[in-house]
Amino acid sequence: MHGANVTTWSFFFLEGFSKYPRLETVLFVSSLVMYLATLLGNSMLILITALDTRLHSPMYLFLGNLSFMDICYTSASIPTLLVNLLSAQKTIVFSGCAVQMYLSLAMGSTECVLLAAMAYDRSLAICCPLRYPALMTRRLCVRLASVSWATGCLTALLETSFALQMPLCGNRIDHFTCEILAVLKLACARSLLMDLTMLVVSVLLLPVPMLLVCISYVFILSTILRIRSSEGRHKAFSTCGAHLTVVVLYYGAALSMYLKPSSSSSQQVDKIVSLLYGVLTPMLNPIIYSLRNKEVKDAVKKLLGRLPQCQARGDF
């Protein structure tokens, strides 16, 4: 580290997909469409869970939190990506980079814990249906959601503060966002404390919640297989099928990003995985829950049915 060109950078260059200029227009259009779909779909889910009294239950409180996280997560990085795809100077100021890194880590980490809480909720609903209202009280539901938020925000603050204190020997980030692993590649030297922090946080927020999800689904599947009627089994599967689909998509992408050897894939592959992880998954979440959940579909139809009435009253 002695003699290295260590500088306190006021801004960073985001290389993004500049090596493929012909793809930038295609990426801009596709990213914009997916971002708008993410905002619309998740906002719709938040709206119907707030307005429809039939959805005032723990499952939908968790789902509302998940939708809000997806909006925040995509809004932290996609607007910058869209601007840079059309700009010759793909830059971001230091403070913007810090906020972007923190929000991405906080929302991603919170979602990891929240998905485990949602799996626990589904296991109680299916394995103990008669005792479910007494076990999963609104107070416990709020506590689980609060613990998810607190865990994600605090671990993100720890990682971001350590990463931004690292001496950097360059300001050209080979990514389309201030992703922490891409920023740490600019460090002048490895830090044992930073590596240990990243490892501990990654293990706590990925394999541990995923293990809890697996345990919950072992109990769920064992209970479903004991249900005699095919209609009862179908209803139980449809209840947790949407959540399981989201879990596979989310943890699969996250594990491929944060728990792999650094030399196992190129940075270009990492950027593509990040784009899918950061845009596609949040966009698919409301679609998956809407298609697999009769209560959500009924609430959407009810909300859409009110719109013509509201317009008629306004015209009158």
Rank of each mutant, 00 (worst) to 15 (best):
M1E: 07
H2F: 05
N5H: 11
T8Q: 14
S10P: 02
F11D: 15
F12Q: 07
E15I: 07
P21I: 11
T25Y: 12
S30A: 13
S30G: 07
M34P: 00
Y35A: 10
T38R: 06
L39T: 09
L40P: 01
S43D: 04
I46V: 13
I46D: 03
R54E: 11
L55W: 03
S57W: 01
M59E: 13
L63K: 09
M69D: 08
M69F: 14
T74C: 14
I78E: 03
P79G: 13
V83T: 10
I92H: 00
G96K: 08
Q100M: 14
Y102F: 15
A125P: 01
L130N: 15
Y132R: 15
L135S: 09
M136T: 03
R138V: 00
R139W: 05
V142H: 12
V142M: 15
L144H: 06
L144C: 11
S148P: 10
T151G: 11
L157V: 04
L157N: 06
T160E: 08
A163Q: 08
A163K: 05
Q165Y: 04
Q165N: 12
M166P: 01
L168N: 05
G170S: 10
D174Q: 11
H175W: 08
C178H: 05
I180P: 03
K185S: 14
A189I: 01
L192W: 09
L193S: 13
L196R: 11
M198Q: 15
V200M: 12
V201C: 13
V203Y: 09
L204K: 02
L204V: 06
L206D: 04
P207Q: 08
V208D: 00
P209M: 07
L212R: 04
C214W: 04
S216Y: 02
V218L: 13
S222W: 01
L225M: 10
R226Y: 06
I227T: 08
H234Y: 07
H234V: 08
H234Q: 09
A236V: 00
F237Y: 15
C240Y: 00
H243K: 02
L244N: 02
V248M: 10
V248R: 03
Y250H: 14
Y251C: 02
P261W: 06
S263Q: 05
S265Y: 13
Q267S: 14
K271G: 13
S290Q: 08
R292F: 09
E295A: 15
D298Y: 02
A299L: 07
L304E: 06
A312I: 01
R313Y: 04
D315I: 10
F316P: 03
